[in-house]
Design a protein around this nucleic acid. Structure first.
Lengths: 213, 213
DNA sequence: TAGATTGTTAATCGATTAACAATC
DNA sequence: TAGATTGTTAATCGATTAACAATC
């Protein structure tokens, strides 16, 4: 590992995919893998695999053999999930999308711990979502003052996301995972933001189908 | 427009975002916009806006003035949604994610027409999802033979996606929009594929928070 | 006219791919 | 040893940014 080489965002985006493939290899009792084989399975190149591995840690590849699956998994787990302490997360929006997404966040194996969910619909307040009680948005400030959540997940319609973004900016949230159409990149220049624009992705597919990729 | 310049995938991915911002401008009765102003609102550069516009059509910018919002919208609508005919789509998986996502596909303004939804759970068959009856997966072949859907949307757990992918490959589907963890890029080399890996995106956010972007 | 802005070419930047000596 | 594969440097490719003449 060259410690001066920092993983770029494109590399970081590929790490979960490596992790998934390596998990599958481990499940198949494969203990060692070459960059060439892994690349073939993932649909990339051996060069890219080796370049990526070069900036994630001490991968200890052995010439003529390949990499230890267990060692790669240990390295990736450290990077993706830290050393055990999960990031505390709060969810905004407990509709169908929020409910579906909550199971990702609440899953113990994804590196997050869901500690609260917020909505404004009276009939939802007090119900639970992935085992967490749904709070009214009015309780947000008090909750954050007390528990200091690190991550926010937004599953809100656009107008809701806009309103929340204005309130959240001063609450110490370090990163956002946003499913809204509303683009949070601008209002939160300092936070880490991952946007998944379902609608945008759908429209891009349509474009590529209509215009031949 | 330079007709020899074809929009690259990164450009295509940005088109829906232009479209959203331009819609907002139109709603605000703004009829003209410069690349500089649009870039500032979208968090990009004027150069990129002009380069992108250069390969999407006859944008007819006027020096000293900017672009006509209506004209840009007309061009983007043509690209993203074609000339009226929506792409026929079928949905796999009518759970919480499928239900949430179905409203995107079924929305008349996104360029798609949802014509069928499939699941295997007996209690779901015959129910409706976004106004479309849920069919049993056993009816898939007969349905495709008759209606020739163009697009498939997969909201399935990994194992389901793997099984479906094996069946779909010969059914004339031209593109996929995939929310599963399972990566369809390899089994469908010829189709246009958009993957939205919710779990991968979440893990990337975690990495960036833990390791400082 | 003067200021602003386009369209397009050139320069830069960064990511991917290729190459290869080292070595298991 | 011979074949395979790494780690890393160099080459290529592509996307983004800068620059600027044309002109509204």
């Amino acid at each position: 590992m060259n410690p001066s080489v920092k993983a770029s965002v494109p590399v970081i985006r590929r790490l979960p995919k490596y992790y998934r493939y390596l998990r599958a290899l481990k499940d198949a009792n494969i203990t060692s893998i070459s960059s060439r084989e892994l690349a073939a399975q993932m649909g990339t190149t051996a060069s890219q695999v080796r370049q990526d591995f070069n900036c994630i840690g001490d991968v200890n590849g052995r010439q003529g053999i390949g990499y230890s699956v267990d060692n790669l998994l240990a390295i990736l787990e450290g990077l993706l999930f830290g050393d055990g302490e999960r990031l505390t997360a709060i969810l905004f929006g407990c509709g169908r999308l929020g409910t579906a997404v909550s199971s990702f966040i609440a899953n113990n194996n994804n590196g997050f711990r869901l500690i609260a969910a917020f909505d404004v619909k009276p009939e939802l307040i007090g119900q639970t979502i992935s085992g967490i009680p749904i709070r009214h948005l009015d309780d947000l400030n008090a909750f954050c003052d007390k528990h200091h959540p690190q991550v926010a997940v937004l599953c809100l319609p656009r107008s809701g996301a806009e309103e929340i973004s204005g309130r959240l900016v001063n609450l110490g949230i370090r990163g956002y995972w946003n499913f809204s159409h509303y683009d949070l990149s601008v209002p939160f220049p300092d936070a880490v933001v991952e946007n998944v624009h379902l609608g945008d992705s759908l429209m891009s597919l349509g474009y590529r189908l209509r215009n031949g990729d």
